[in-house]
């Protein structure tokens, strides 16, 4: 074995952030492919809203618009949490993380409301099947985001996250920005174009 002399200490790598970005890229492919398949199948069923959405079904547009607005709010709030944390402003960090979690639960509530309002049976036909598959997947992604927020919140309360370890909050912020972008695409395809 050839011994190699010591190197200077490397700069701290942003491992968590790069891994998170790759995970978000994978999730973007998931939602992108689901929307692509949705549009292709829709095209195969006539390509118009009238031919695709079952008669008598009303899609609650107001609630979906509210969901989009909440998602944008969440993006701002989670960025506020990160901004506060890197400045060691713990009070605002806790407040921002708490509000983000509250709004995220609001997104779940709005999604459940939309499902109940529409009153569609999953086994009704191709539209129902695809609608529930795509909105259900997004629902699961939001639940995962809430879990991440709670973990970050508890770690911050326990003093495990501060200015020097803000990377995990940056990762959570990145994930919620991604979710906002993903919902914007879902909103456009599923709730506007239908």
């Amino acid at each position: 074995m050839i011994a190699l002399p010591a190197a200077p200490a490397p700069a701290r790598p942003r491992t968590l952030l790069v891994g998170g970005a790759l995970a978000c890229a994978g999730a973007a492919m998931l939602f992108g492919s689901m929307l692509g398949i949705y549009l292709t199948i829709r095209d195969g069923h006539g390509g118009t809203t009238a031919a695709w959405v079952p008669k008598g079904v009303t899609i609650p547009e107001i609630q979906s618009n509210i969901m989009l607005v909440i998602m944008v709010f969440i993006s701002v709030l989670v960025q506020w949490a990160r901004w506060s944390l890197v400045r060691e402003d713990r009070t605002h960090t806790y407040m921002a993380l708490g509000l983000t979690t509250l709004f995220a639960v609001g997104v779940l509530n709005a999604q459940v409301f939309i499902w109940r309002q529409m009153g569609l049976a999953v086994r009704g036909g191709p539209y129902q099947s695809m609608f529930y598959a795509i909105t259900g997947t997004f629902f699961a992604a939001v639940v995962a985001g809430i879990v991440l927020l709670l973990v970050c919140g508890f770690r911050a309360l326990g003093g495990r996250i501060g200015r020097r370890h803000a990377e995990s909050v940056t990762l959570v912020a990145l994930y919620w920005h991604f979710l906002t972008a993903a919902f914007a695409a879902i909103w456009l395809v599923v709730y506007v174009v239908k």
């Binding site: 492919m29 689901m34 398949i37 099947s129 695809m130 529930y132 598959a133 997947t137």
Partner: peptide, 8 residues
């Protein structure tokens, strides 16, 4: 994504 659709 395709498998989710297939499962539902």
């Amino acid at each position: 994504g395709a498998l989710i659709y297939y499962y539902v």
